[in-house]
Write a protein that binds this DNA or RNA. Structure first.
Lengths: 295, 295
DNA sequence: TCAACCCATACGTTTTCGGTATGCCAATGG
DNA sequence: CCATTGGCATACCGAAAACGTATGGGTTGA
């Protein structure tokens, strides 16, 4: 069963004549006649009644015609759909994100994306650092919004901005009086930490910052997310060092202060599989850059 | 866009490997590899990611896969549907009939047909004699139940039985006393006639019967159908000479009597276009014969 | 009876497809 | 570190299929 034959068949059925159909198909009449007879031989039944004034579908031919037209349409539609997906005009863009970042970015990012990639299904999932990496690798997400970037040979990274570290504390903490908190004031105070570096690279940036200033902060608790950390800070369990964007959506009663002499920041990055060459990725990066720039 | 290529593509996508797919397709690996690359060239985008352990669909490939599978299924289904119609396993059988006959036959004919041609859509239409002929010729009905047969070079006929002529009269008519009515008793009595022979061949059979016995009956009325004739008979407008099957469904107050010395009968026939070679027609004839035999 | 129209057949040419042989690359194992 | 294995890609050749030109045959209509 050959698609060319079906195309010829449909043309002849519509033109009700081999000659007319051959003209429309830009070919000579005899080979078309041959192809139609071969199709009839393949089906095992006549598809046309040959009259003296052209061809006319038999009932079997009509049964074939409807399905053949559909099959043809599906084939060209399939090719077009594949091209559209390859060109980024259609498809799915699945984004893995972390809540701290997304809370600040998504409200602007989503409309930006809808404008930039119309016709593409968007799909967002809040994921922990290690899950983001895993789901990038198994391709169940297309891109991940990370802070900091994922470090993995298969994963490619585009830095789209940075977030300064801020100290988060309860509003009635004595440090809250200061506009900027000197690093040495952190010495010995309890820290609400994120999971250790092997699970979440964010905490290694904090650790590096403290180490550089020779500050030791005992770890009062380890929590999964920045927002959990802020809850413990509010409860007086300790201080947290978090990216500036955590301000958005932080509970009332928490204040944020920059750390004096510590211009440290943490990279905001888009990560994706090195072998995913979808044009949606660069479009996503452009959108994310634009949103981060205005944060 | 070639259906073979799509078939190969689907096979490779399912096997996730060119080698495995080639095995399943009973062909060597290199030509399959070539065909896949040709398909990718035609689409203009890679459909697979080539890994060291086989092939994996890209997003574009997935978009193509769903449609390609559907197109393949439709193509084979189309071929099968055409074969089924040609073999009479599916299709449509459109029957044109006259009410007198159908009234007696349809209740048995329809179940018979459903058993004989399951899967075929049945379609019945009551049509006048001239309309039956016209709609056979333009193929809007497949077969016609006629009494008598249609006479036309393009139309083929199978005689499936005959109906004796009966005299229909009001129950209180003096002739009703007789078990059999001698032809000479009809002389001069008013006749309720059907349309003239050029419109309905049935009336020419009646005319021939009367002429042979040298009976003249003035025509009191011409009506379209046998049942209209019976209504006028009931009203006392005249007598009617009708096929025996008219008894079924005749209004109360009408009696039917055979005509003595007149074994005349009118053929019951199935008619169809000479060039409609559908196997449904012979099945229909068999069913109709069976039903007529038990009338 | 002739011309026009339309489909079918015949034959030579060209395109395309499939098979075999072989190369390249990465992962695996001693 | 080298050899082996597994998988896809490339090259070349023979075979099959399709297309075009030329032509035949049947029907319609002037």
């Amino acid at each position: 069963m050959d698609l060319r034959r079906l195309r010829y068949f449909v043309a002849v059925a519509e033109a009700r004549s081999i000659g007319k159909a051959a003209e429309r198909l830009r070919m000579a009449q005899p080979p078309l006649s041959v192809q139609i007879r071969k199709l009839e031989a393949e089906i095992g039944a006549p598809l046309f009644r040959r009259g003296t004034r052209g061809m006319d579908l038999t009932e079997a031919g009509q049964a074939l015609l409807t399905r053949a037209s559909e099959a043809l349409a599906l084939a060209v539609d399939g090719a077009e759909a594949a091209r559209a997906v390859a060109a980024g005009r259609r498809g799915r863009l699945s984004v893995g994100y972390m809540f701290v970042l997304a809370n600040a970015m998504l409200p602007r990012l989503i409309p930006e994306l809808r404008r930039s990639v119309p016709g593409v299904d968007l799909d967002f999932a809040e994921l922990s650092a290690s899950t983001r990496e895993a789901r990038l690798l198994d391709r169940s997400v297309t891109v991940a919004l990370c802070m900091p970037a994922i470090n993995h040979p298969e994963i490619q990274v585009a830095r789209i901005g940075a977030q300064r570290f801020m100290l988060a504390m309860p509003i009635r903490s004595p440090l809250a009086r200061l506009g900027t908190v000197p690093m040495e004031r952190l010495q010995g105070r309890p820290l609400i930490a994120l999971p250790p570096p092997e699970q979440d690279p964010a905490s290694s940036a904090v650790a590096a910052l403290l180490r550089r200033h020779q500050i030791v902060m005992p770890i009062a608790s380890r929590v999964e997310t920045v927002h959990s950390a802020l809850s413990l800070v509010l409860a007086g369990e300790g201080l947290a060092i978090v990216p500036a964007c955590a301000k958005l959506g932080a509970p009332r009663g928490i204040v944020f202060r920059p750390l004096r002499d510590a211009a440290d920041s943490i990279d905001v990055a888009v990560c994706w599989r090195r072998d995913s060459q979808s044009p949606l990725i660069s479009r996503f990066i452009k959108c994310a850059e634009k949103v981060v720039a205005r944060m």
